[in-house]
Design a protein around this nucleic acid. Sequence first.
DNA 1: CCATGCAGTAAACAACTGTTCTCTGGAATT
DNA 2: AATTCCAGAGAACAGTTGTTTACTGCATGG
Lengths: 208, 208
Amino acid sequence: MSHTLGIRQAQKQKTRQALLDAALGLLEEQSLSSLGLREVTRAVGVAPTAFYRHFRSTADLGTALVEEALGSLHPMIRTTVSTADDSEERIARAVELIARHVDAYPAHVRFIARERHGGVQPVRDAIREQLARFGQEVKDELAKDPESAGWSDDDLLMLANLYVDQMLITASLFLEAQEATPQERDRVIQVATRQMRLISIGRHHWLD
Amino acid sequence: MSHTLGIRQAQKQKTRQALLDAALGLLEEQSLSSLGLREVTRAVGVAPTAFYRHFRSTADLGTALVEEALGSLHPMIRTTVSTADDSEERIARAVELIARHVDAYPAHVRFIARERHGGVQPVRDAIREQLARFGQEVKDELAKDPESAGWSDDDLLMLANLYVDQMLITASLFLEAQEATPQERDRVIQVATRQMRLISIGRHHWLD
DNA sequence: CCATGCAGTAAACAACTGTTCTCTGGAATT
DNA sequence: AATTCCAGAGAACAGTTGTTTACTGCATGG
């Protein structure tokens, strides 16, 4: 599908990715609104002016990071919600999936948690849009479940967003526990699992 | 109780408060890690060096803001959770209380939401500590409720933290809807109410 | 009433920022 | 083979930053 692009474009994308990676690293200890463009280029080893060949501003780079962090996550979410297991096992699977994702991409998770309410509006908007998509997709999967019979569209979306928020909270908990003891991590797993379970119980008795 | 303090101390606290207020204002459009101390003093109209008479750094000022934003909120939370009404009415009361608080102190709410996962560790820690206190207090109130019979301590705390997180999510939603149309605000009220209700239902059937 | 303490001032510091302009080497196109 | 294009370099710009040092004026306590 992807028409192999010339040496020219390849190098460009390489530098672009280097800028994104460097920025993501720097953002572990600060927030986007304090990230300087010179700081990023210095970390990569290119001239400050090279930055403009790829991004208009650090805010622009931020929205690109949002795409990188969340864009490829949609299929994963869909399949996780839709697998028609026993509810209890599905919860365990989801929690472990989140744990693995946080371990694999901690900087991405931190970035999203930090900039969701951060000081740069375009980035906040980009994150909100992605999360809204997640909400819709979760809702679509929930709608297929027999248990959703009799539910209004509004209520399904309400529940879907509750799940999405809960996933973010859980991811953030795993992030905090990342450098803690294994038993602390286990405690996070337990808490996250039970909170999900409680929500699922509420879902089950919603129409009573 | 408070021994009336002299002209000296009074003036000092006045400038200190002015610094806090100015910082809170500036933080509406950026995050703490990008807030400059000169920026703050300029907004107040004092010399940059005056800043050091009150705070070691902007991070220090940040933790003071955490105290200001959350410190006085504990009694309010306690009474809201403890009032032994019908569950449905209690939810409505809580949601409206959050709405009023966001209207009264939008900058405080934004600050907490932003810096909870922000780039300044001491501030993150201060917020986490306050939220943990909220969790404990909510748990204490829940424990008094007859419905909590048979619940383990861990599960009560798990539920309490779920409530606390839900309050923050709701506050953040109200913040976003603050400059939106009234019907958008009503939609937020509806969603928040139903999410709380679903959690309460889950709570009710937890021991099944 | 006088000496001390201390909130706030003023100036200077090296280091840093985003942005503009001009230039260059090599890939891409013809 | 000749030409165009463009990612990146380099230098310079006016402003900004945090922090130090020495100071001033006034409320405070003896």
